[in-house]
Design a protein around this nucleic acid. Sequence first.
DNA 1: TTTACCTGAACGAGCGCTCAGTCGCATTCA
DNA 2: TGAATGCGACTGAGCGCTCGTTCAGGTAAA
Lengths: 215, 215
Amino acid sequence: MKQDSNRIKDIPTLVKNPDLVERRRRQIIDAAVQLFIEKGFHKTTTREIAAATGFSIGSLYEYVASKEDILYIVCDAIHEEVKRGVQAALARSTGGRDVLAEMIREYFLVCHRMSDHILLIYQETRALPVQWQKKILENELNITGIFLEVLVNLVAEGKLPYLDERSVELTAHNISVLGHMWAFRRWFLARHYSIEDYTQLQTEFILGIAMGKSE
Amino acid sequence: MKQDSNRIKDIPTLVKNPDLVERRRRQIIDAAVQLFIEKGFHKTTTREIAAATGFSIGSLYEYVASKEDILYIVCDAIHEEVKRGVQAALARSTGGRDVLAEMIREYFLVCHRMSDHILLIYQETRALPVQWQKKILENELNITGIFLEVLVNLVAEGKLPYLDERSVELTAHNISVLGHMWAFRRWFLARHYSIEDYTQLQTEFILGIAMGKSE
DNA sequence: TTTACCTGAACGAGCGCTCAGTCGCATTCA
DNA sequence: TGAATGCGACTGAGCGCTCGTTCAGGTAAA
């Protein structure tokens, strides 16, 4: 788990007690994420974040150095949650031949549950310094990487027809992005499809190219 | 062409001469689009836009009522251009059985050429009043609608295997979004795929479910 | 008394937008 | 023909306010 270095924990703080820092930052994240979703990053003031968190602006600035810090830890926390969801699904999977469908299903449900959060990342990452934008994108690839790994294993085990490396990789990206698509277009798609409908159709779509009919 | 009513033209201006207004707004769009891409909407000041356009802030505000107006006409112009690209491709198409592949190809090329612009729309639409956000989303659906129409015709003519209504619609959305995916992930994908590779693989992916092999 | 954490008034840079005024061209009038 | 008048387009200094950030001081536990 290399990517855990150089993370939130390394953002400087004025407060000594690390447990307290973590607790307080969790509070900040929870408050800020709501506000950012409601009003967007730019229209949310630091004072509002402080108030929603339950302490003063002064205190807020004991735990983060800037407003951008807050956006960064928020984005990071979101990725962490998505990743946790997918990995949990993977862990409890039976390892059978349709791990893939199960994983897609679970991932799409995570995207459904967190669609506001996913939108947030697409929309506000730009406000971060380039250095941090890169980190966020790495996180994104990280999740795609999980899909890729599963696909590669399946192909290696012959449980999926042979696909060349690039097709496999592209399929992993497609899974990621078709999940996000539900977040972007949910307001429209939901008129015709439930998330279950959507998952089923897209799973057929994704597996379609590889296996005639699954189930 | 219902959607042309209630467009840019209806945004109020202090200048009487409509030709002049159109010319000047075109200048504003060209200047602003560059700045927004470089620095983002929020970090771009109205003074910078005015300077880049070549006149004073005072004049700027003769042609638009607010900074948001500028973002709106920029987004609108971008959609207009994407749409024009797709429709042009459609118009010069031979109408043969692979209109679809041609259209996808052309659309993906447009996405390639305009990837910064597409990102801009995803990232900054939020800064607009809800009313206008809706209009932008309508424009988006508009483009998906073009794909849908083509798909429906092909299915009706039997040139595509039968797909139920919802699958056809979802396919149209997938085409749209997989085009955008190139804009989002280009920085990464371009390491392994050229836009031609990408187009080819995704076309197989999209058509895969419907027709065994195309070509 | 010292240390760790918290408070909120105050600062000041930045920015969207206004408006009093200028300029040049066209139209009217002597 | 030339002066007078009006008008539409353009200018930019400056207003008013917001908001991120700081810092001098407070409180409570050790």
